[in-house]
Design a protein around this nucleic acid. Structure first.
Lengths: 217, 217
DNA sequence: TATATTTGTGAATCATACTTCACTTCTTCA
DNA sequence: TGAAGAAGTGAAGTATGATTCACAAATATA
């Protein structure tokens, strides 16, 4: 024999792989899938296009990895928040604010993950991701409904609506960039929107019992 | 001279043009922009690909026309609803339900119009469209806030969130088709979500105000 | 009907990426 | 050091789909 991967080499390869994923994510964050061509990724990493294919069998699979990586990371953060012991309202608010403010930093990324279509294979992965996001929010919602904090409602639909709500609200500033202060205000407003929708008229008489329960039910 | 468009010819051309737009819309509704290639459009209309270019200088401009057409039609309907004299709550609910149920018929269409990116030129048109939708909802929101029916809130953000909420909620079924009955239920749930968010729990959208019980779980 | 002009055709052309591959360069180890 | 094998290169190969263009068909006047 005459060649076997040394640990050093092993590490370098793993490093390359990671840098490819990172570069891809960066490009997607910058300008959506459109910007993340293999050529662009290769250039950013400092490799040739051909080399990319030594690490990933296809562009689609690379995207899927970027997608699932980022989403599972994101879901981890959200789950931590939601596993806390504050009221459901507070947890929901915190989760939305957390997600939204991070999404604001790379709006195209959040957007791409949630909505942008490119390829059946990636789309399939995205559906799973959306479900994951939805599931996280659904968890707090059910807790809040059970405790009476939130109005009775279809938790799955509400979860989807919440994901959609901040997606849309965040897409807008993609085009007309705003100041950090404005961004903060936006995030707050979005979180309030989601909390209001979840709480509905079903909040147990507390601060604002001024209003009689909404019809619905 | 030896040729001038006869009125009949004029009409036929106008008809062709309209059929091109219709066919494009149909294809987009069926499977997003992906399905609406020039070749597919041409085939559906019964013309050659080349002929399409006699009516539209480029695919992008064709898409922009389809987009603005559909959106202005949609906004017309919504504006009628919103101009009614029911309560702001009822008008908002009706508007959301109307939009959502129509969108459900061609989910890819609504989706494509609101989110799917393809081309800078089309994207630009879409931004305008989104603003239009937002503006319509903003109108009822402001009315409701003014009348005290709705909690004080950033009407523009809420409007965006509402658009986003049903976009997302509608995208889900794109993948897993459901029965008409389920669709009706979904539409109702989405509308309720939006109404709850607009109405609020009665407490003005104060940020961290501890709302109540700490049931935990 | 003859002719100028316009509309319609569809194969060829162009553009843009993804993917492959013959080849070079680098690593490892006897 | 040198041979075996892996990693890296980037131009060529493909695929897809928009756009063009030389030509045919149709239409309107004299």
């Amino acid at each position: 024999m005459a060649y076997r991967r040394s640990p050093l080499m092993q590490e370098r390869l793993a490093d390359n792989r990671e840098r490819i994923v990172l570069a891809t994510r960066k490009l997607i964050a910058r300008g959506g899938f459109r910007e993340a061509s293999i050529a662009a990724v290769a250039q950013l990493v400092g490799l040739s296009t051909g080399a990319i294919y030594r690490y990933f069998p296809s562009k689609a699979e690379l995207f899927v990895e970027v997608l699932t990586n980022a989403v599972s990371h994101e879901c981890g953060i959200l789950n931590d928040i939601i596993a806390g012991d504050a009221t459901a309202t507070e947890r929901l608010r915190a989760a939305v604010e957390s997600f939204a403010s991070r999404a604001l930093e790379g709006p195209h990324l959040a957007y791409a993950f949630i909505a942008e279509p490119i390829d059946p294979e990636v789309d399939a992965a995205r559906i799973v991701c959306r479900r994951q996001f939805g599931a996280v929010f659904e968890k707090v919602l059910r807790a809040g409904i059970k405790s009476g904090e939130f109005a009775p409602q279809a938790a799955d639909v509400t979860a989807a609506c919440i994901v959609g709500a901040f997606t849309e609200a965040l897409i807008r500033p993609v085009t007309s960039t705003s100041t950090p202060a404005e961004a903060r205000k936006l995030v707050r407003a979005i979180a309030e929107f989601c909390v209001r929708a979840a709480v509905g008229g079903g909040a147990p008489a507390a601060t604002g019992a001024a209003r009689s329960p909404r019809k619905k039910a």
